[in-house]
């Protein structure tokens, strides 16, 4: 096969992908930007000032998402590590089990948590079996803790899988060499395994933090619809559930979130490059 044919076929192969990107990524973003900077009288920056009005909402969303991301990381790393060290058969089965919940719809799974966490739910009724019928029950739902739980539960696989992938890519001879040179387990982990898994960690953080900060359904179902997160606010402006539809403010709020995420991603990518490693890959 000559080189030119290869290049030509690559170009043809790119058409569906580029088409998809233009229609479902570029144009929507262009529309968001357009709406964010327009008002009744044409061009305006005033929509962006709303983010200041809703700074406490933004802060709450960032805070809850950061907590969820941190918890995911703490839970996911040991799990990913253990799986990556296991036999091939165990690895295959373990990845399957991690993916398994994703075969069910996200909404259905989140509703299921309602039945688990409610005052008459599985946990509290289980506790009543132990402590007697009079046990008042723990307050597990309709609060910020339940929202974090929902985020952790739904997005944990997106943290485990990239870390696991990064860990399996580590060349075992590096570890053997370190051991030959007299390194202990802690030192091997700190100086070889952890640095080499950084790309996976960064991927995981991005893939958990982004959907967490933009969620609106988890806060509605598990938070009791009491406290808006920034995603709820954007949804409200687009759907007009409060009585007024305002695409401009909704788009401006979305744009601010997008820019924030973009900056965070760039920052982390730089961090990734500084680590001078390969594997994982940032999404």
């Amino acid at each position: 096969m000559t080189k030119s044919v290869e290049v030509g076929s690559k170009k043809v192969n790119l058409i569906p992908f580029s088409g998809w990107m233009v229609v479902f990524v570029l144009i929507p973003i262009a529309l968001v930007v357009y709406y964010a900077f327009t008002g009744v009288d044409g061009f305006t920056l005033s929509n962006l000032t709303w983010i200041w009005t809703y700074r406490s909402t933004l802060w709450l969303s960032v805070w809850l998402s950061l907590l969820a991301t941190a918890i995911c990381l703490l839970l996911a790393y040991p799990v990913a590590y253990m799986i990556s060290r296991a036999s091939e058969k165990v690895q295959r089965n373990a990845s399957l089990f991690i993916m398994l919940p994703m075969w069910m719809n996200f909404l259905v799974r989140t509703y299921a948590w309602m039945t688990i966490l409610e005052n008459n739910g599985l946990i509290n009724n289980g506790l009543r079996l132990i402590f007697g019928e009079d046990f008042a029950g723990l307050n597990l739902i309709n609060n910020h803790g339940a929202i974090i739980l929902g985020m952790v539960y739904n997005y944990l696989p997106y943290m485990i899988l990239p870390i696991y992938t990064a860990l399996t890519k580590i060349d075992n001879s590096l570890i053997e060499a370190a051991r030959d040179l007299g390194s202990g387990g802690v030192q091997i982990f700190r100086r070889i395994v952890l640095p080499l898994s950084v790309p996976g960690i960064i991927s995981g953080i991005t893939m958990v933090f982004i959907p967490s900060i933009s969620t609106f359904i988890i806060s509605k179902i598990l938070g009791g619809g009491k406290d808006f997160l920034i995603g709820d606010l954007i949804e409200d402006y687009f759907l007009g559930n409060s009585g007024v539809v305002n695409y401009n403010i909704g788009a401006a709020l979305s744009l601010v979130i997008m820019v924030m995420i973009l900056i965070a991603t760039c920052f982390m990518n730089k961090f990734d490059k500084d680590a001078k490693t390969n594997g994982g890959g940032v999404i």
């Binding site: 809703y54 406490s56 909402t57 619809g225 009491k226 406290d227 808006f228 709820d232 409060s242 007024v244």
Partner: peptide, 16 residues
């Protein structure tokens, strides 16, 4: 009045 209603409702939901 709709605008006021929307404003007050969002304020209710964003008061933590």
């Amino acid at each position: 009045t709709m605008l006021l209603q929307s404003d007050l409702w969002i304020r209710l939901k964003t008061t933590y």
